[in-house]
Amino acid sequence: MMNESHKDMGAPHLSKKILDLIEQKGLSPKPRWHFFVREWVVWGMVCVALLVGSLATTLTIYIGNASRFMERHILFSDLLFLFRLVPFLWLFLLCIAIFYTVYALRETRRGYRWSSSWLVAGAVGVSILIGSSAHALGIGEAIDRYLLTEMPLYKPLTNFHPKMWMDMEKGVVAGTVTEVEKETFMIKKLDGEILKIMVVSEKDMHALPELHEGMRVRVVGTTTIEGGENVFKSTAVEPFRGRGGSLFKRVRIPPLPEMKER
C-alpha cells in the first residue's frame, strides 16, 4: 500500500510503482482487435434483435389484417372474441426484441449518448419499416403459413381458429364458390357441406365482379330456411385471402359436429 507520507519521504512516484507492477505481473495492453470484435458482436446482437422485431411486426400486421374483416362486420360487441384475434405471441416477441435491441444498443461504444426513449423509438421505427416492407412482400404470410403447417404448437399459440369462420350463429361462414348465379351462389364450406348464399346487397355483387367457381370467400350474414333448405343471406362478401383463406388445402380442418347435424 502506498500513501502520501511515503511520497513525501522520497518514496518512488506512483508512475514508477505502477510501471514496476505492470512489468512484474507481465501485463500488456489488450490488442485493438479485441475491442473491434466486441463492438462487432454487440452490433451483430442489435441486428439479430432488429430482425426478430421486424419479423414479429410483419406477423402482427399480417394476422391483424387477416382478422380485420370479421372485426369490422360483427364483433364490435364481442370483446372477448376480439381479444382472441390479437396476435399476442408476436406482440410479446416484438416487445422482447425491442427490449433486447435497446439493451444491445446501450452496450455499443456510443450507445449511452442516446436516451432510452430515442432508442425505443428507433427500434420500433426500424421494426415497423422493415416489418411493413416484409408484409408487402408477403413474407409474413409465408412464415405464418409455414409455421401453421409445420409446427403443430404454433396454432394454439396464435389463436388460429379457421373454424371461427364456420359459426353461422354468429353470422359468419367461409368456403369455396362452387356455382354462381345472378343473385345467389353456392359454396362448399370448410367442413365440406354445400351452402346456398343469397346476396342481399347488390353492392356486394358489384364489389365482387370476379366471383367465380373455385374462389375462396368469407361471408357475413344471417341464416334463414327457405323451401326447407338452409340459405345464408349475405350482408358482406369478401375474398378469403390470407390467414385460413388460402390454407384450405394445406391445413386439415376437422368437420364440426354441430355443422353436420344441420
Binding site: M1, N3, L27, P29, K30, F35
Partner: peptide, 24 residues
C-alpha cells in the same frame, strides 16, 4: 489510504484497455 490502491487499479485498467480508447 485505500484511495491509493483504487488509484493503482485505475491506472492498471487504463493501461490494459488503452487500445480501446475511443478517440472521439
Amino acid at each position: 489510504e485505500e484511495a491509493f490502491d483504487v488509484l493503482q487499479e485505475i491506472f492498471i485498467k487504463a493501461y490494459v484497455n488503452a487500445q480501446g480508447f475511443d478517440t472521439t
